[in-house]
Computed example of a mutant assay.
Amino acid sequence: MTGAPTQAELDAARLVLDRMGVTAEDLLNSVKPPAPTFAEYIPVVAAAVSDGTRRAYSPYWNRVLDQWADISLSDRTPTDIQRLVQHIKANLTVRRNTRNGNSAAEHLIAALRCLYRHAVNDELVDERSNPAAKVPKPRRQPSNRRA
């Protein structure tokens, strides 16, 4: 639509809204507040999860805070998460049992899924726009234990 709506178009919109039981005020008042930043929301989720979950995910939430503290939860995309996974894998501490950072990547994605699952439950982020759910976890490597 390039110009102002015609009277017929306005009447049609009013008719549709009337049949749905929605008023113009409902549309104006339905603006949702912006999603919180990671720095605001991670402590909320950390307080809501069990001690074991907090111990497992806190290192990864801290890395998210290092990178995205002042960014809104709704401003991240699956590509941003993949980029953070690659950053974590590239900067990991190499130990004798390190397996190219696959476990770190898997745990980071699980920590973000937990965070976004709480955000969806709190209606801060729409379930369809949950970026963590769209990022696949890396495939597990076969065990290197031998008999």
Results as ranks from 00 to 15, higher is better:
R76D: 01
D51L: 10
V16L: 12
R146Q: 13
R113C: 06
P138F: 10
A132H: 07
K32E: 10
A46F: 00
T2F: 12
M20V: 06
R117K: 13
K137P: 08
T98S: 15
P5C: 03
A105P: 05
L27A: 07
E40L: 03
V16T: 12
R145M: 15
S72T: 05
D80L: 01
F38N: 01
S143R: 10
A47F: 03
S129G: 03
A47C: 02
R63T: 03
D70A: 09
A110Q: 12
V120A: 06
V45H: 00
A13Y: 08
A35P: 08
V64S: 02
A90D: 14
G3H: 10
V45L: 02
R95D: 07
I71L: 11
P5H: 05
A133Y: 09
R55P: 00
D18T: 13
P5Y: 09
K89P: 02
V85R: 12
A46H: 01
S103T: 11
D66K: 08
A35G: 05
F38H: 04
A119T: 07
P43S: 06
Y116F: 13
L92R: 15
V44T: 15
V94P: 04
R96L: 09
R139L: 10
S143G: 14
Y41W: 04
E25M: 11
D75L: 04
K134I: 05
L92A: 07
A48F: 01
M1Y: 13
F38W: 02
R55A: 12
A48W: 01
V16N: 04
A24V: 15
R55H: 10
Q82R: 14
V135H: 08
W68P: 00
N29M: 08
R117F: 02
N144K: 15
S30I: 00
N91S: 07
N102H: 08
W61G: 01
R145N: 11
R139M: 11
V85E: 08
G21E: 10
N91G: 12
R83E: 12
L73H: 02
I109E: 04
R117Y: 04
N130K: 07
R54P: 00
C114I: 02
N62Q: 14
A12R: 14
H118R: 08
Y116P: 05
G101I: 09
K134M: 12
A111Q: 00
S143D: 11
A132K: 08
I88H: 03
S143N: 08
V120P: 09
A8K: 13
L108K: 03
A4T: 14
I109P: 02
D122N: 10
V135K: 11
N102R: 10
S72W: 01
S72N: 06
N91T: 10
L112G: 05
Y41H: 05
N130R: 10
G21Q: 10
M20S: 12
S50Q: 08
Q141M: 12
R14K: 07
R139N: 14
P136V: 10
D75T: 06
